[in-house]
Design a protein around this nucleic acid. Structure first.
Length: 314
DNA sequence: AAGCCACTCGTTTCATGTGA
DNA sequence: TCACATGAAACGAGTGGCTT
């Protein structure tokens, strides 16, 4: 298992642009290229790696702010962020949607019973502009959760290699060590997905009960991971109709096509038209529950009785 | 076949940022 | 000050290949 660094502080390391190593320990403030705020990895004393590539070259976002940050609270949306959001809005509501047609709130409290509120990344609504322009569009407000990727295993090994590159005299001109594959490091889809499942079970319920819909924008590797886990269940495609849950994959766009979003030197991303799922929330929940088939043998065969002997249960 | 080792995967714990 | 979200890192178990 191997990964390579894809972006260092927002620079695509293969773009040929010079990559400036960041110096300074914990507390150092450098701007994040994707949001109006500073790089939280650098301020924590970590390496500013925004994304990596797995052995097959597929992008895996490793920074929570890379795809579309929801903080700082009072910061304006960057152009990059509004580009991401308009792309999602067009996927949901149609290609004619403009930026004046869409409004968002960030870190929106989701009322839950029996526990303190959790927060949804975004709530996205059509503005009056859009509703008067497209009276036939029946798709309303959505709760939008964003998860570009997650973490890697063996983070320390990756950190060590980036750290080695940063102090090389040639670092400012050569990305050699920086882009060297790091063996023994892998992407951990399961962790990202496990954490999302528990959230979306109640957030989805609140969204649906509030006449809204739930949208998950996920990185392509995450999308593939969860579709594999749900493969046995045929889910009908309700695009353009009465869907209440959408999965929208975001993948790399080498072609830099019209719909792609990026900052000046970052890896361009786009909505992956081949990885979209529009279904109903209850059906999706059912598909999650159905993970794992039946196994009657589980309750038959050799057992250990509590007073010692091995017995056979039939 | 048994033991050893490297590697991977998933879990747990810890730390930090953030906002209520 | 508290709780949530989530990344970092350590930990533990399973697996498969290699050697003896």
């Amino acid at each position: 298992m191997t990964v390579t660094v894809a972006e260092y502080l927002g620079i695509d390391v293969k773009s040929g642009k010079s990559v400036q190593p960041v110096s300074g320990g914990k507390g150092t403030q450098v701007p994040c290229p994707f949001r109006a705020g500073s790089c939280s990895k650098v301020s924590k004393g970590n390496k500013p790696v925004c994304s990596v590539r797995d052995g097959s070259g597929e992008l895996w976002i490793v920074c929570e702010h890379r795809l579309c940050a929801t903080s700082p609270k009072d910061a304006p949306l960057t152009e990059y962020q509004s580009d991401v959001l308009i792309s999602i809005a067009r996927t949901l509501w149609g290609p004619s949607v403009e930026k004046t047609d869409v409004a968002v709130r960030r870190e929106v409290p989701v009322k839950t019973e029996g526990r303190s509120d959790s927060r949804a990344d975004y709530v996205m609504v059509p503005t009056s502009d859009f509703r008067s322009k497209d009276k036939t569009n029946t798709v309303g407000p959505v709760v939008l959760e964003m998860q570009g990727g997650g973490e890697t295993s063996q983070t320390g090994a990756l950190t060590a290699q980036v750290g080695k590159w940063e102090v090389e005299p040639s670092a400012a001109t050569e990305v050699g060590t920086l882009i060297k594959p790091v063996t023994s490091v892998g992407t951990i889809e399961a962790n990202a997905w496990r954490r999302q499942q528990e959230q979306f079970l109640y957030k989805g319920n609140v969204a649906v009960n509030s006449f809204g819909r739930l949208v998950f924008a996920v990185g392509s590797k995450l999308y593939d991971y969860l579709m594999n886990n749900l493969a046995s269940t045929a889910m009908q495609d309700l695009r353009g109709a009465n869907w209440t849950l959408a999965l929208v994959a975001i993948s790399e766009d080498d072609q830099k096509s019209d719909g792609s979003f990026s900052t000046t030197d970052s890896v361009p991303l786009k909505i992956d038209e081949n990885r979209l799922l529009f279904t109903s929330y209850p059906k999706f929940v059912q598909a999650l529950i159905n993970q794992g088939g039946s196994d009657p043998e589980m309750f038959r065969g050799s057992f250990l009785r509590l007073d010692g002997p091995t017995i056979t249960v039939g």
